[in-house]
């Protein structure tokens, strides 16, 4: 009996060592440690490709950007993180304000990424961008009636608007862009008008809003472009049908342009593998990687040499809000408070 216990223990211990071995064998090999909010299959493929090319292993911690920033902050100068990868400029800004990022200079990055999609001093870089658009019911809405985000708060859309919770960072950045364009007072009035127009209390993700339009719960949804792209290419026929029931409208084309947000990276202030971090970011900004991001995740590549996927190309070109994304980060907390006051769940 006792022997059996020992045997089992030894077996379990071996298994255990095998399973944990992954993170203790970092002494010799080249690595780059990534804190990432993105969990797309495409990313994993790219990291493998990067390792193949450079021999540098990519270690990833996946969590929400908020959690990762908190972790970076607590770990301080002993943090193992090299790169922070978020899906929103606001979070990069938060990391920047907390002093968690360091500036880097790279000709490759400056060439591949347009100036308004990266930090002026190189604290962070956008790698892809997505537009926050209006998805309208092809059946019930005439796109000629659509114009701006501001117009969605107009009374004639009462009970027709679908949008997710204010806890979502895409909405926070959208409101920040409205604060920047129209001022705090107008933004508060807009948020209140939107709440009054909602077809239902906010729930679910962007895809759920699109489905609710298809199901007739409302006529208009606010969504990020790549979600619709993913739905249009889903293996489930019902998902495709739901996405085909909506049209995509790019708002504010006659003034500041449609709100966009980036998915981007910054190098951690105390990055132990800074050189590798820069190599990884450069790799991600180059045509090959940009193409994968564009094709597999239906995002807009920042690198102008890369064409967008057919699915989103079908929606046509559009004018982008050219506000510097750093500004959205600055206004983020004001946006959160405005949402809370307006009662946007």
């Amino acid at each position: 009996m006792f022997k059996n216990i020992i045997k089992t223990t030894a077996f379990a211990a071996t298994l255990f060592m095998m399973a944990c071995g992954g993170n203790s064998t970092q002494e010799q090999e080249q690595v780059v440690n990534l804190y990432s909010h993105r969990h797309y299959e495409a990313d994993q493929k790219l990291f493998e490709e990067f390792t193949k090319e450079t021999g540098i292993k990519v270690n990833v911690v996946n969590a929400s950007a908020d959690e990762l920033i908190q972790k970076l902050e607590l770990e301080g100068e002993n943090s193992p993180a090299d790169v922070l990868f978020t899906v929103d400029a606001g979070r990069l800004h938060r990391a920047e304000v907390k002093g968690l990022l360091q500036p880097i200079t790279s000709d490759v990055l400056n060439e591949n990424i347009p100036a308004n999609l990266r930090h002026p001093e190189g604290l962070w870089f956008g790698l892809t961008y997505r537009a926050r658009v209006i998805a309208y019911s092809k059946e019930r809405v005439d796109p000629a009636d659509l114009s701006t985000y501001e117009d969605l708060a107009n009374e004639r859309w009462k009970g027709k608007v679908l949008v997710r919770s204010s806890e979502n960072v895409y909405n926070q950045s959208l409101l920040a862009s409205i604060i920047a364009a129209d001022g705090a007072e107008a933004a508060t009035a807009w948020a209140e008008g939107m709440v009054a127009n909602m077809a239902r209390a906010p729930k679910g993700g962007d895809r759920d809003q699109v489905k609710a339009v298809a199901g007739g719960e409302g006529d208009i949804a606010i969504t990020n472009t790549y979600y619709v792209g993913i739905m249009l290419n889903d293996s489930n026929e019902e998902e495709r049908k739901a996405a085909e029931a909506v049209g995509i409208f790019f708002p504010n084309q006659n003034d500041r342009g449609t709100h966009i947000n980036i998915s981007g990276v910054g190098v951690a202030k105390y990055a132990p593998n800074k050189e590798n971090a820069i190599k990884l970011i450069e790799f991600l900004s180059q045509e090959k990687a940009q193409k994968v991001l564009a094709e597999e995740n239906y995002e807009y590549p920042v690198n102008a040499k890369v064409s967008i996927s057919e699915t989103i190309a079908a929606w046509g070109d559009f004018k982008k809000d050219s506000i510097n994304l750093a500004k959205l980060g600055e206004l983020n907390s004001e946006a959160v408070v405005t949402f809370d006051k307006a009662g946007w769940k």
């Binding site: 489905k211 609710a212 719960e217 739901a242």
Partner: peptide, 22 residues
Amino acid sequence: LSYTGPIQTFFRNQLGWNTSGP
């Protein structure tokens, strides 16, 4: 129970009922 889930799909496609909503 979601819009594209089996239950609503069945109602919608087989019976022609729109069950979207609360």
